[in-house]
Structure formats: C-alpha cells, structure tokens
C-alpha cells in the first residue's frame, strides 16, 4: 500500500478523513475548554481574595 492509496481510502477519502478530523477536533476542544475553565476560575478567585485582603472586606 502506498501513501497515496492510504490517503485515498479506496475512494472514501472525503468521508473517512472528515469524520476522523472532526473527532480529533472535538476531543481537543474538550480538553482545551475544560482546562481553560479551571485556570480562569483560579484566576478569578485569586483576584477576589487579593481584593478582599486589600480592602479588608470579607463576604
């Protein structure tokens, strides 16, 4: 099997590669958004606590 044959997927290239590409994209987006949600929340809390410490207020 040559590399071109592999890419061609027996004529199904458009279907096979679009579904594989979509899958990889959905998985990666899940990882990125979940990790960003944690770091954004940590940053928000850091801001909140420093702000409270500076003003002396605590809610």
């Amino acid at each position: 099997m040559t590399f071109m044959e592999f890419l061609n997927m027996g004529g199904y290239a458009a279907y096979v590669w679009s579904s594989v590409g979509l899958t990889v994209a959905v998985l990666i987006i899940n990882v990125i958004t979940a990790r960003r949600a944690v770091s954004q929340e940590l940053a928000r809390l850091r801001g909140r606590y420093t702000n409270e410490a500076n003003t002396g207020a605590s809610q």
Partner: peptide
C-alpha cells in the same frame, strides 16, 4: 471497502 473505517470514530463516540 475502506469506508467502514469510520466505525473507529463512530462506535466509540
């Protein structure tokens, strides 16, 4: 043919 290979992403999802 090679079209069946979509199974590897479709069935797990």
């Amino acid at each position: 043919g090679d079209g069946f290979r979509i199974i590897y992403v479709h069935v797990p999802s």
